[in-house]
């Protein structure tokens, strides 16, 4: 857990940028600058680049991220992650969630190069109303990236057992919205762990059985990207920030050389590398949540006026050569580019 918490001591966004010059890449290869700025409550999305089977990522628009844009040498392709748009939410923490999702899309459209895919890791809507799905679809239609893949969050599924989600965003998926596809040699697996027991995510036996079978035919050198809403690993079980049977899913992934797990739900970036598996959670496009244990409970966090967009973000990931480090970069909606 200690590794997690180091990300929570983030300075403010301004300080992060100042300190960024010395901070560069750490020996584990994570671009800490990028996600620190998100932890200073920026959060929008992440651009990921795949090269030779290893993903690197950066947040949109931070000066540091632009400077070391891994579009450069050897990138096979890049993709973007956004999360937790909560269309329909209208409380004090963000009265204009459509506006901030639009800002994220604008940011994505301004990413240099052209990311191949856009992943949305759930809580597209606040309460799974038809009108909320409509608004989200309308805004997402404006994305320059047309190949968009979704997984549901509990806000998309708890009202009606995912019925409307499956109709609007989960066509052609299995069970309650899980599926896989291969893009340029990278195997992507979308999971639904939004069914909660005491706030903790679950995958369930049926989905686990499918996952085992889905992975069975792949060679260990196949790069894997798993994306699901609730963190697959135990970020903070006290608040239900984990998946009760996530361990089993991760067991099936042990034999692969490069595994990247992307989640949302907790509205802040937390990263961890464990053996061959790197974990990352993305910021929300709607509102921040408190750092684990820093408040009596999880929930929308109101931030001082004018600060909101600095805590929302987009994640860009670049898939780089096998020996290159993982680079995940989160950028805030506020930063320029």
């Amino acid at each position: 857990m200690s590794k997690l918490h180091e990300t929570n001591d983030a300075p403010t966004a301004v300080e992060t940028k100042k300190g960024a010059a010395q901070q560069d890449q750490h020996k584990d290869g994570i671009d800490r600058r990028g996600f620190l700025s998100c932890m200073a409550w920026a959060g929008t999305g992440l651009v990921w680049t795949m090269a030779g089977g290893v993903p690197t990522s950066r947040v949109f628009g931070t000066a540091s991220a632009e400077a070391q844009t891994p579009h450069a040498a050897g990138a096979d392709f890049s993709f973007v992650q956004i999360s937790d748009s909560h269309i329909g939410f209208n409380k004090a923490a963000n009265p204009d969630v459509a506006g901030t999702l639009q800002a994220a899309i604008d940011k994505i459209n301004a990413v240099p190069g052209s990311p191949d895919l856009l992943l949305h890791t759930g809580d597209i809507t606040q309460t799974a109303r038809a009108s909320e799905f409509d608004t989200a679809a309308q805004i997402l239609k404006g994305s320059r990236i047309k190949d968009i893949h979704y997984v549901p969050g509990e806000h998309d599924t708890a009202t009606d057992d995912a019925a409307l989600y499956l109709e609007r965003f989960g066509k052609g998926t299995r069970g309650l919205g899980w599926y896989s596809f291969t893009h340029r040699g990278v195997h992507f697996v979308g999971l639904n762990n939004s069914r909660q027991v005491d706030a903790m995510g679950t995958l369930g036996a049926e989905q686990l059985a499918w996952l085992k079978q889905d992975l069975a035919a792949l060679t260990p050198s196949t790069p894997i990207v798993v994306f699901a809403h609730i963190p697959l690993w135990m970020v903070y079980p006290e608040w239900g920030w984990g998946t009760s049977d996530g361990e089993q899913a991760l067991g099936y992934l042990k034999r692969f050389g490069s595994v990247t797990v992307l989640n949302g739900h907790i509205h802040q970036t937390v990263q961890k590398v464990e053996g061959n598996v790197s974990f990352h959670t993305a910021c929300s496009t709607a509102f921040p949540q408190p750092a684990p244990g820093s408040a009596p409970s999880a929930g929308p966090m109101a931030v001082p006026a004018g600060k909101l967009r600095s805590v929302l973000g987009v994640t860009e990931v670049k898939y780089m050569g096998r020996k290159s480090p993982l680079a995940i970069v989160d950028s805030s909606l506020e930063s320029t580019t």
């Binding site: 509990e154 806000h155 708890a158 009202t159 057992d161 069914r195 909660q196 027991v197 005491d198 706030a199 608040w239 239900g240 009596p296 409970s297 999880a298 929930g299």
Partner: peptide
């Protein structure tokens, strides 16, 4: 209750 409510509530402790 388990399908709709337990994302934010439990019987025994405060969550969201």
């Amino acid at each position: 209750f388990n399908r709709r409510c337990t994302g934010c509530h439990s019987l025994t402790s405060n969550h969201e």
